[in-house]
Design a protein around this nucleic acid. Structure first.
Lengths: 252, 252
DNA sequence: GTAGAGGTTGACGCAGCGTCAATGTCAAGC
DNA sequence: GCTTGACATTGACGCTGCGTCAACCTCTAC
């Protein structure tokens, strides 16, 4: 005794389309196919279908379902693999949930998005403590006052310049040029010139940063991941540092 | 100042293909397109890309990302909707995890899969307590002994018959026929005949179940969801009950 | 004979790109 | 001016698991 595709589908709580799909992928061939091409299913097929649907509800994909149904004693393996998968998924979801929550909090608190903060990495005033510890409170205060006095347009321009420079560093690093190459040294010069325009920076007004300041910064770039991020990762930061040190040796 | 698609991609930690995709879907058009068709991106585009990637990491889909980036003050809404989504997903995963765990346990314990149990619903010995409470301990013991004496092949045959009958009930119910229709009454007769062949069932040996037993069973089918499941859900079970009650009135 | 319910085999759609494939561009070296 | 190689472009298929037409048989019932 067997039944039509619709009967089986309704009984099992699924659709005839799904049954045809399972036939197509070889997961559940009909027990019989009429001369007219109609699919018919018997009790055995129905039992198999029930199992399939149960496993599907557990979240298994079609290949995994096939595995479970194929290996009589391999059940444990396929299901356990799926379990591990699920647990990993749960961790991912959990991380995303907390990340989304903190993002919402940030926005409500009027803070800017993380991504925006990134480019503010070029705003050295972010690193108050490091700056004060290395070059003194006055240095920081001067820089800070200078920065605050800028208009929004000026700030944007400053950021743009920083972004370009950081970017060009990265491109150079990606191209695999050497730290003592002309390209790298030109970038180091741009960086030095730029730094010397910032009040509070050691060397301000002399047209170039002091050697100590410049090499200190170079080391900081690799030591502090927040800086490294501005240059496209730690590897690039190392390239930047080496180029800057080379430049300091030669020019400062 | 702007950079090539590769430069931007590498800097942001993604691929040029992704950037082209974002252009295609209108999420991130390049800031400039050369006469040769090349895409170029400036700092503004880069900032936007950073945001996009951050939101993507939070699990948002492209339309959701577009929403967040579009509505300056709608951020909260889109993100909160996504948060609700995530929490719902987590619940689903949790349910699947516990379901998979219990399934593994069942298999290890040598039990059969849920799906297999379903058809054993026709094995009335599953319902020891109900049977004893309604029709006495002797009735259950007789049935049980009879069932145990059967060979596997006989059991399979019995189940097949039960499956067919249950199935045909469902099909009839699905067709919307009336309980007093010829079709329904014929099914009720099949059911009655079948029941009368089971030792321990009230009416065994007389060629027909007793009216009390038959009507009692009918009520049990709707009262107990485990039975209802055998007929394709509670609605069908009600149809089965009504047909059986009608049959009992007329024939028993 | 005809209507209506139900069956069949394609084939597109969805989400977000990965991955060719065929072809145009540009900078660099000979 | 030509070659080479790196990088750009625009298609278009693939993946997951079916939902959803579409065009076209088949069977049953009146």
């Amino acid at each position: 005794m067997d039944w039509s595709i619709q009967d089986i589908a309704k009984f099992a709580g699924t659709t005839s389309r799904t049954l045809r799909h399972y036939d197509d992928v070889g997961l559940l061939p009909p027990s019989r196919v009429g001369s007219n091409g109609y699919r018919y299913y018997d009790e055995l097929a129905l039992v198999r279908l029930q199992r399939i649907l149960m496993l599907r509800d557990l979240g298994l994909g079609i290949p995994a379902i096939a595995d479970v149904l194929a290996g009589e004693r391999d059940d444990g393996h396929a299901l356990r693999a799926h379990l591990a998968w699920l647990q990993q998924e749960r961790q991912r979801i959990d991380r995303q949930i907390s990340a989304v929550e903190s993002t919402i909090d940030s926005i409500e608190g009027g803070e800017q998005l993380m991504a925006e903060k990134m480019f503010d990495g070029f705003d050295h005033t972010q690193y108050k403590e490091e700056v004060e510890a290395r070059w003194g409170k006055k240095s920081y205060a001067d820089s800070d006052a200078w920065w605050r006095a800028k208009s929004d347009a000026e700030k944007a321009e400053f950021r743009t310049f920083a972004a370009e420079l950081g970017f060009d560093w990265m491109v150079a690093a990606g191209d695999g040029v050497a730290p003592d190459s002309e390209t790298a040294q030109a970038l180091a010069k741009r960086q030095a010139d730029w730094l010397s325009t910032i009040p509070g920076a050691p060397g301000y007004g002399t047209g170039a940063p002091t050697k100590e300041y410049f090499t200190g910064l170079a080391e900081m770039y690799v030591a502090d991941e927040r800086f490294a991020a501005n240059y496209g990762g730690i590897e690039n930061a190392r390239f930047v540092r080496d180029s800057m040190l080379e430049y300091a040796e030669r020019q400062l």
